[in-house]
């Protein structure tokens, strides 16, 4: 059961990463910080977060969603 929950968790994380890659709540906002729009800083931070999430995913859950065991894929790694 724990496995299923983890799967859904990851799908949820991916969905959130997609949904807010464009900061919709800043629509029409022109505030700048250090010379660049705030939404651009959001982008930089969000991509960093995505990278981190992807790294964790590839470490812990990579083969889960594909239904393969790590041993299986070691053809000639």
């Amino acid at each position: 059961m724990k496995g299923r929950k983890t799967d859904y968790l990851w799908i949820g994380v991916f969905a959130v990463l997609v949904a807010f890659a464009i900061p919709w709540f800043l629509w029409g906002d022109a505030t700048t910080w250090l010379g660049l729009p705030v939404w651009l800083w959001w982008h930089v931070g969000w991509m960093g977060a995505a990278s981190l999430a992807f790294a964790l995913f590839s470490r812990g859950a990579w083969d889960r969603l594909m239904n393969v065991d790590p041993e299986e894929v070691r053809f000639d790694g």
Binding site: L40, H43, V44, G48, R59, V73, G77
Partner: peptide
Amino acid sequence: DVRVLKRSFALWPVLVVLLFV
């Protein structure tokens, strides 16, 4: 091997920022 795919996957968003911004 699969490590190559995993690493590329995680590095992707960072590279996007570094180049496109």
